[in-house]
Design a protein around this nucleic acid. Sequence first.
DNA 1: ATGCGTTAGCATCCTTTGGAGGGG
DNA 2: TCCCCTCCTTTGGATGCTAACGCA
Length: 948
Amino acid sequence: MRTRNQAKRQNQSTANEDSLKHYGEMESLSGCKDEASGNETLANISRGAVGKLLKRVNKSRGSRGLKTDDSYLCKQDTMGEPENGSSEAEKQLTGTTVVRTTLDAKCCTTDVLQNVPSELENGSTDVQCQSIEREDELDGIDWEDGPVDTLKSESNVKEDTINGVTVEFDAPPDPSKQKTVRRATAEEKELAELVHKVNLLCLLARGRLVDRACNDPLIQASLLSLLPAHLLKLTDAPKLTANALAPLVNWCHSHFRVRGANDTEKPFHSALASTLESQEGTPEENFGNRFWYPVPDKSVLPNTTVAALSVALFRALNLTTRFVSILDVASLKPEIEKSYPSGKGPSRAGSGIFSSSTLMVAGPKCSPLSPAKSMAYGKHNVSDKTSTSAGQATSDKSRETITDKSNKRMSASTSDAQDDSNDACIIKKERPKRKGDLEFEMQLEMALSTTAVEIARNTMISDVKDVGSTSSNVSPFKKKKIKAEECSTSSHGISTAVGSRKVGAPLYWAEVYCSGENLTGKWVHVDVVNAITDGEQNVEAAAAACKLPLRYVVAFAGNGAKDVTRRYCTKWYKIASERVNSIWWDAVLAPLKKLESVATSDVVHFAQGATRSSLEDMELETRELTEPLPTNQQAYRSHHLYIIERWLNRNQILYPKGPVLGFCSGHPVYPRSCVRTLQRKERWLREGLQVKANEIPAKVLKRSGKQNKGRDVEDDDYGEGDSEGTVALYGQWQTEPLFLPPAVNGIVPKNERGQVDVWSEKCLPPGTVHLRLPRLVPIAKRLQIDFSPAMVGFEFRNGRSLPVYEGIVVCTEFKDAILEAYAEEEVRREAKERRRTEAEALSRWYQLLSSLITRQRLHNRYVDGASSQSAVNIATSNDKSSFLAGGSENTRSAHQEKSEIAKSNSPSFVLAENHEHVFLVEDQTVDEESSTRTKRCLCGFSVQYEEL
DNA sequence: ATGCGTTAGCATCCTTTGGAGGGG
DNA sequence: TCCCCTCCTTTGGATGCTAACGCA
């Protein structure tokens, strides 16, 4: 076995080698492998590759601590291959494969293709390869020293084990630690919310863009020209009904169909026009800035263009129409990956929201469509999802991953092969197996079984243009694939097959206002892509089937937008926590809603001045308030409308306890408006409320053991049992405004501690005022005014809770006097403070200058040899002095008489032969203009300096 | 597939009123 | 001797919320 450094070196060299390798070379390598392993078919290779990847996935969910050792085993596994062949090339291959398995997944294809045969031959399932995702993880690897047979097959490994040669892995995984999950920090939550909001705004803007394109007269005219004459008159009826739209919808559905994805970026408007021309819409036309569109998986989107064309057509026919979209926005909650002990978990670089399945589509360097993925758009949009994964797995340089979001949204992020350093492309793998993962694995297998063949056929060039699900070999997954095809090709088939999102997921549709529906008219859901009319009640189920959360459904018209989620979402409690703060959202939508209202309002106003928009608002509000009772108890935990008693907090109560709206598993359901929060007496005092006399506690809680300890027997006027161990709680309806004894004769009423607890202004005794100013106590004392310290709260210091005082409470009549005295005192204090500061500054200047002089003197004496020079001479004549200095003989006489005083008062250090300058404060002059101050010594020496 | 009960981890709430020692 | 200031040290238990997990 190699040393760790050797491994690293070889790893690096191989990495470079790999990076330089051409696909053709790889192909030749794989070709060698094929020859070596005999009758390996590409399908088998592909299947093996799938197995390999799945094992990696499984492995990554398991012990991270085993990673190193897995790599080692992988080595042996891989090394075992060439026993069938001994060509030079293979020997070389053997030498490098060891490292290749530890490389980043960018060499995935080669790795996979090389590893597969041996695995297939050996039927190995126990020994698994796990590639190390990041090179830096290699740093944590401690290679064991010792000989190793590089050509040892897996069977040899087993033999060795049997013969007593065992490899013991240190730090075996602790299952309990493995299970630990890392909770999102507040910062991460904030970031996720920001991303969510930005994403929402982008999607809103995008919706407006599409909406605007639908108004284009040329497109509308072209659509009309295509429309058969008999359909033109369908909408002429004065009272339009949903049924009348059906032929139009069918025509659209049959004339515009989904075709392969178009990678060329062009404005949505022109995309719309070209779709119109070709009568084929893409699943998602790229337009403008692709960054705007952070869809998790483009391949599964229904046809935006077709939906938009239908809107344009309806508008061309003078129907009031809105373009409706589910805003598939990044999650409001941060994506948390598993935490791994000993820091061996996957790097968090690139993790988080952007690396989740909701992948921000960046520039071409990180196209969301891997080659294989774009292939999958071709004829069979069934396997689009799976091809995505295939693209990852087979692309030479791509990094493979499984996102932890698969449980909810079942989409694997696709990273680009071109740019390994792109954070957005860094993908992670983690999490224990869950239902979503299983589904993903199945899809992965399907995809690989298909695309590996295709890729081989296309000589593994990176820029694969097309692929069909043309796998001719009999795949074990064929049945599933066929089933999926059937589902997706069915016009109404919004299938839950394999649990993935599919084409047909209701992301976009139209809403046409039909005046013939209901009494006042109705917005009718029209999904041309799936040829569904008036199917609003099915949208929620269809979206759920496609794992598409129905968080925001927004209708666009007139360059505005309106949230119509309520129309389509009946289980609001499921999405409420996934929606952004409603205040923010309403504020964002407010201006857009006006625009939308103007655009969709008819000239005809309804009774009592109600407009179409306000009627719709009422309808949506009614839906909100008449949400059906959930059937599961958990839903009542945070339901905005209903509650069952078991989910009440310990300080909550139902008051009044009724009416009972229904039952859930035998539990009566009450309106949430009946839930009241209870408080202790003391807490109500803080809010300026006091419990009424003779009120019986609404609830009595048992106090915890610790709280019991050291707490005196609490007054319990109501005798509700053991007062020591209980806490009496009261509801607000049991309280009244706080009554405090008023201030009398200038005396502030105080509590038992001789203070006033000022939790709020309501807690002040009548006739008193709280002066929140520092240093008031001495003033009040000096003025002999009665006061009380104002306690405003508590803080924890030194391990205990300490009261925080802020200012004092005095009778109102003394307020002015105290404030006046305070102002005077402050002036005095400030002047005193200023003097003190100046004196200190002077002192420091003095020290500085003295030290400079001393330094210079020492310098002259010991460095320049001028030992006899006096300090006075140095100070007065030395040009090297760093500060501006000038002698002034005439000032000397003026200050001579002060010299004696100065000498006696100043900290004189007069040496035998050295005069120590003394700068008296009263001898200073200040030049206001230049801010320069001049200090003078009695000897006549002066110093000028600029004030800072 | 879904719901329920349990468990665990983490975030947040709640608690609540010092005392020794030195210097002026 | 009294008063004032500084320093010491930096809670921790209960509860709520959420997600995972096993089971029905």
